[in-house]
Amino acid sequence: MTSSRPIELVCPAGSLPALKSAIDHGADCVYLGFKDATNARNFSGLNFDDKGMAEGIRYAHDRGRKVLLALNTYPQADNWQRWTGAVDRAAAFGIDAVILADPGLMAYARKTHPDLRLHLSVQGSATSYDAINFYHEHFGISRAVLPRVLSLAQVEQVIASTPVEIEVFGFGGLCVMVEGRCALSAYATGESPNCDGACSPGKHVRWEQTPKGMETRLNGILIDRFADGERAGYPTLCKGRFEVNDETYYAIEEPTSLNTLELLPELARIGVRAIKIEGRQRSPAYVAQVTKVWRAAIDRVLAGGQPFRVEAAWMAELNKVSEGQSHTLGAYYRPWK
């Protein structure tokens, strides 16, 4: 399988309705996960059992679209078979590619299913062409998803120095930490993105109205406190307000979403092959809205002709579904660092 379009739009599917919503609104690919810790959105009520997977793949393939399976957490000695079993199931389902992070699992996939297309997950923390070429040389990966840490010029340098297709995040919740290099949730709750596929998991969250305001806690740790009238956000632990040298502020990151729509022509010019939309934990309505806008924008860029202009209506639509109703260019914009 080779990529059929110059830039693929890769959309999140946390459920079958979200998958259909993405396909119906113009996604070239959807990515999804099984209902367990083998993927980095291991949340209750999300993801696919075998029946849903078969139906989702059929729905996509009938319409000429692709389905990618995220198996992007790190297996351990005592649960190794669950991950290899997931690779086997994916291959049997006729999935278009698996998105992996663990080198041992890649070796397994390459050996057991030589024709299965492999993508390197963002959880692999590969931020340079030397890192990406390691996975290419040993496991023949076809594509790598870049962590949200590089500037545009750095992404361009990577693309120029690797035969591997490059996928970048275009929109959605923003991990301020390098993906795969964050154990904050493990420290606070014992559940980690790397091994459990969870960050700041819901079962550790407590919302409490107090005389000082609405308090949000993660495993007892106060993540933020909201005055009346302030919109209380989910206590993702890097997005709380903390005290540093007697100053209280969003010390790590504000609740905000990544939005690179305005960079789209540049991303196309430097040879980015796919744009990923974050949000498998979000609703089918979110998926529809974001997919629709990005489809229109990508089609505009690919059509060429007039200089690309971001429509005000597009931004308004995207801001409506952004975390904290605001957005950032993240690391693409140097001062953000």
């Binding site: 949200r148 840490v149 590089l150 301020v176 930490m177 390098v178 290099r181 964050c182 154990a183 904050l184 493990a186 420290y187 890097c238 790590i252 990151e253 690391a331 953000w336 660092k337």
Partner: peptide
């Protein structure tokens, strides 16, 4: 514990 790394300082 070194817990996390970021592009941001």
């Amino acid at each position: 514990l070194p817990l996390a790394y970021s592009a941001r300082c």
